[in-house]
């Protein structure tokens, strides 16, 4: 009986996993805490003029953010955002979006 019960639960779990397969889970760590607040504008797909940065090379994102921050690259709003992050934090954000 216990075995049947377990088997049923396993089936249920497999079904649930199937249901959620399109969802990419998030891990709670410093990378995520710094980055998910950017996801309000930077989606996993291009939606309008704001580019998606998901899957872009980490070095590219890191350089862009540092250049925005240090006013070496012109922007409308990104300079104002990038000034809120240290080099180390920018690296974490770059890693997060690059792994998306």
């Amino acid at each position: 009986m216990q075995f049947v019960k377990l088997a049923l639960w396993r089936c249920l779990v497999v079904m649930l996993v199937g249901l959620f397969q399109s969802v990419s889970a998030e891990t709670i760590d410093q990378r995520t805490m710094l980055s998910i607040t950017c996801s309000g504008c930077h989606s996993d797909e291009n939606v309008g003029a704001i580019p998606s940065i998901a899957g872009k090379p980490a070095q590219y994102i890191e350089k862009a953010l540092i250049d925005f921050r240090d006013d070496k690259r012109s922007s409308t709003v990104m300079g104002r955002h990038a000034k809120g992050y240290s080099d180390a934090e920018i690296k974490l954000i770059a890693e997060y979006f690059s792994a998306k």
């Binding site: 939606v47 704001i50 709003v77």
Partner: peptide, 11 residues
């Protein structure tokens, strides 16, 4: 910024 306004909303 007007363009980013509508993209902001969509995102």
């Amino acid at each position: 910024e007007a363009l980013y306004t509508s993209s902001w909303y969509a995102n």
